[in-house]
């Protein structure tokens, strides 16, 4: 029947509209569920999600030692040339030459936080940090050197 279909149409439409309005009224009256982060005010208590990736860093231990062997796997893995590994040759106590990093140059302004370098690293020397306040007044400040000055490779990392 045309008329019953028509009435069913109208009542169905009203019912679905009422469902939507009930949901928004629930939100309107439940202020405790507000998800807004009032960012600059809550910096002390700000909780970041685990999956958030802010920039690439190289952790150093208390003796100023890192785990990077200078194998350039990260440089090869990077899709847009963000990482540049500058190597040098150290003289080991036995008198042999050994390859080590001089500088690990990281261009934050090019990085897309794709995480491929971290996955490519065989010795877990770099990881993703959760910092996000990267604004600076000069673009050159975004080019960073990840290894600390005077740092050397950790014992036992090949």
């Amino acid at each position: 029947m045309f008329l019953t279909d028509y009435i069913k149409d109208v009542t169905g439409a009203l019912k679905s509209l009422a469902t939507g309005m009930k949901r928004t009224l629930y939100y309107f009256t439940h202020h405790k569920e507000i998800i807004t982060e009032q960012y600059p005010d809550n910096r002390a208590t700000l909780v970041m999600a685990d999956r958030f990736k802010g920039e690439v860093v190289m952790p150093h231990d208390e003796k100023n030692e890192h785990r990077c062997t200078g194998c350039t796997a990260c440089e090869l893995a990077c899709p847009n040339g963000t990482i540049k590994v500058v190597t040098k040759f150290d003289i080991t106590p036995e008198g042999k030459k050994k390859k080590a990093i001089d500088k690990l140059v990281y261009h934050l302004e090019l990085c897309t936080m794709c995480n491929l370098c971290v996955q490519a690293c065989p010795s877990d020397a770099i990881k993703m940090a959760q910092t996000f306040e990267h604004s600076v007044f000069d673009r050159s400040k975004l080019t960073k050197i990840l290894n600390n000055p005077g740092s050397k490779i950790m014992e036992g990392v090949e």
Partner: peptide, 10 residues
């Protein structure tokens, strides 16, 4: 304000 509260914002 109404918009914000309905969208669970401030």
């Amino acid at each position: 304000r109404v918009a914000a509260w309905i969208q669970i914002r401030l």
